[in-house]
Design a protein around this nucleic acid. Sequence first.
RNA 1: GUGGUUGUAGCUCAGUUGGUUAGAGCGCUGGAUUGUGGUUCCAGAGGUCGCCGGUUCGACCCCGGUCUUCCACCCCA
Length: 459
Amino acid sequence: MGVSTSIPKGTRDFGPVEMIRRNYIFDIIRTVFRKYGYLPIETPAMENLTTLLGKYGEEGDKLLFKVLNSGDYLSKSNQHNLENITSGALTQLITKKGLRYDLTVPFARYVVQHRAEITFPFKRFQIQPVWRADNPQKGRYREFYQCDVDVIGSDSLFNEYELIQIINCVFSELGIRNIIKVNNRKILLGIAEILKEDKRFIDITKAIDKLEKIGIEGVNREMEQKGVSGNAIDKLQPILFLEGDTNTKLGKLKEILKNSVIGIEGVKEMETLFSYINLASLKSIVELDLTLARGLNYYTGAIIEVKATDHQIGSLCGGGRYDDLTSIFGLKGVSGVGVSFGAERIYDVMQILDLFPGKGEENVDIMFVNFGSNEECYSIKALTKLWKAKGISAGLYPDPIKIKKQMAYANTMNISFVAFAGEDEEKKGVITFKKMVSGDESKVRISNIIGDVRKLMKD
RNA sequence: GUGGUUGUAGCUCAGUUGGUUAGAGCGCUGGAUUGUGGUUCCAGAGGUCGCCGGUUCGACCCCGGUCUUCCACCCCA
């Protein structure tokens, strides 16, 4: 059988059918991004580990794919005692690069590095693969595409509103019903503050984030395990179950958080954001969800997550505001917001809900039968004329094998028309076109081949 | 990283409580009068039963390791 043809865990090949569907998704996303005034950039697959490490929390660091140094990297570390070295210390010696884990951190690096050339506010989008050494699972791969839109260098909440519009637009064009959940890290921070548990802020938010999954008892248990005081847990309960629409929730929160400056700030931000949202009529449902936390450490303000209403697969899109990401790279006072669409999950959802447009793009319109050297000139002449027509895909079967075989090929390839340009046709100046689905044959004049074929294809 | 699960022809799967030449359907290849497919009929090719090692007179089936699949946890798109 030869050498093994397997590919690494969590990676996939994409055949023609999948590629056409994936490109359908990318095209819609790209077009929407452009419409809202964002411009494309790309960054390398590899970054220096110094730019990647420490941005995604401890867990995130573990999931980074590292790239081995080139050359005889061990010879340079001979001065160290390799026999007693820990794998962590060894790693530092032999790898300095890693595959990107997301697009936001490389983007922040890009902004700082190119700050002189960039005019702020800078609106960009980026559609590229990212890699995570995670264990594969439903909707999770080790290599997957993200489609990021970010605006950096503006504090305005209008940007958050614009992103929500973009999300609404993308998913409505793709036909995916969805719910956009919005929250604000400042509100969560405020809650931790009034619970007097600021230090366990991350633990608390992570626990709350699981409410839907593990229920209130599970959340409480987890907080207890992390050392959150019973008093704080009790105080948290009514906040978790705030009832009513977004406005009344915000009103109650204002009361609860009145002693937290940061908390009130978060509430006010949400108030203005929702006042913008209420101006528009969106297909997506937008709601304030206090249980939304989002793990990525660098978010500081609004956080956003999108879920499909008709299929459970984790979030299709997520993001938020990050105030300090560029300051890590030495550029202070530049705030950014952005969201990231997950192409593979969108693909999976569309596949399951059967949302891809009907077939048609996937196949070739016309295949000329190859009759052999005596007649091929006539076929080539006709085909070459057809190639000048926009929107018609056509080819000649390359080898003069049995007609039966050629027909069978056209059949399995889903070709719409088979064209016969042989001796008989050449004498009369016509070409026989056979419509494969019906078997009907009709003659087309070579003098007016494009016009006649167009007419045929319309029927 | 933790726990479970999967791996037999190109694909979907049978199979033997360990015993000589491992099966089906679909697909593929060739044929059924020379310029016509999707139906039918006939014939044929294709597997060191994921990989490595162990137990055994003997293993595809038992044991260990490893890789892979799918799932849950962790975390996340």
